[in-house]
Design a protein around this nucleic acid. Sequence first.
DNA 1: ACAAAAGTGTTAACCGTACACCCATGA
DNA 2: TCATGGGTGTACGGTTAACACTTTTGT
Lengths: 256, 256
Amino acid sequence: MINDPRSLSPKEFFEKGHNYFLPHISIDCVIFGFHDNQLKVLLLEWKDTHRWCLPGGFVLKGEDINDAADNTLRMRTGLQKIILHQFHTFGDPNRDRGTHGHNTPPHVKGPSWIMERFITIGYWALVEFSKVTPTPDQFSASCQWWEINSIPTLILDHNVIVKKALESLRLQLNDYPVGFNLLPPKFTMPELQSLYETILGETLDRRNFQKKMIALDIITRLNERKQGGAHKAPYLYKFDKKKYQNALKKGISFGI
Amino acid sequence: MINDPRSLSPKEFFEKGHNYFLPHISIDCVIFGFHDNQLKVLLLEWKDTHRWCLPGGFVLKGEDINDAADNTLRMRTGLQKIILHQFHTFGDPNRDRGTHGHNTPPHVKGPSWIMERFITIGYWALVEFSKVTPTPDQFSASCQWWEINSIPTLILDHNVIVKKALESLRLQLNDYPVGFNLLPPKFTMPELQSLYETILGETLDRRNFQKKMIALDIITRLNERKQGGAHKAPYLYKFDKKKYQNALKKGISFGI
DNA sequence: ACAAAAGTGTTAACCGTACACCCATGA
DNA sequence: TCATGGGTGTACGGTTAACACTTTTGT
């Protein structure tokens, strides 16, 4: 046994990975970030083929799939302590040859366990854009944010997975205040509104949005304003966990 | 190759199943029915051990997981053309020895692929109670409906799976008119209300419930009343697919 | 006739929506 | 000084929630 099969060299990984990982099962992560009023997704670029894909990986033989998702994300992008949310499992036997042709991963010379049919478990997470430093792993030429509407054609069915993740995120937004995870600890009301508008894909009334958010009683206005903007300085707010816990007990609707 | 690996005898299945099915991956189905104002779940009873479990099975090597769920359900319970809804994938490596001790399936004498760690993909479905005739397969002593609050201790983590399925069903009830699938084609308003109350676990105002349902404009009142009750005969209604399609276009909220 | 279930209508409170005015700031 | 973005308040309309009376039927 070695220390961490996820640190294997590409050659070893493709030749010996089946000794450590469950066959036919993979993990894919759709990581959302928010920057410049745009919703972004973190993608990896394969070395050699330079095709883009979701950060994904495999499940160790004795590993919980949720832990596998955490560990996969950390090893492939450097992102740690991210709360991942399982949303769907994709099990079409032809996932590997949709509209994009059959994909052979780079580095694979002979036959490999990796060329078998895979069922993939999809996770998404929301991260604070400015706080993370995406770092590509040994399989990847780069690790970059892509604006959600400008994502290139990805390998396998990964475009489908992104689409389904966004649908799941939109539904969640109605039940939980997930959006705050995308923002820095201090944020302005226009920033929060822009976030909601971007995720939901529709524009919202500025005044009503503010009222709704204040009424939820889960954020606190600080005695600070965001300086440096071109116009009137907006107030800063912070998400208040205690208030949120209280609000949950009372029952609360986050629908906009 | 044989015709249908799901028809193998138990002995062959445990000894040779790994030739046909993906290892480490299973399917479990939570089938909901509604009868006597109670929400029920369809369970199978193992031969030999007489322990109860969800109808579940495995994925053929070239089979879509959704097809695997359909086929599994049909072969194990006789239920056909049921719309199954994938809700969660369970991947704790210790699923097989939760509070109930490690479970050895019956018929397994020597080592078997079936004794490995399994990740299971959960599906649920709503069926019209009186329309189906549950039929146990060759592994099962019986196939019966259990009232959701009286389910016995099941094998593996199946109690957890049932709980999660119910949570998923409750959420769906707010977005889609899934409830109608549990009722016969003709039903009364009190029956429909009882169904909602049972699934949601709360009582509702009779008059407001009726108004809400009528306002959705997806059911039609018939010129018939349900006879045979002890009191005033209630009208019969039917779910109207055309109206439902129209309502969907306009946008519609099923929340109670 | 009476109890129990079913059909129907009215009201007030609440929430979502639409909309207008004033303030601060950099160009 | 002006254009732009930000902060705040009000009024209307629709929806929901609370609630009462009448009708039917078996006992």
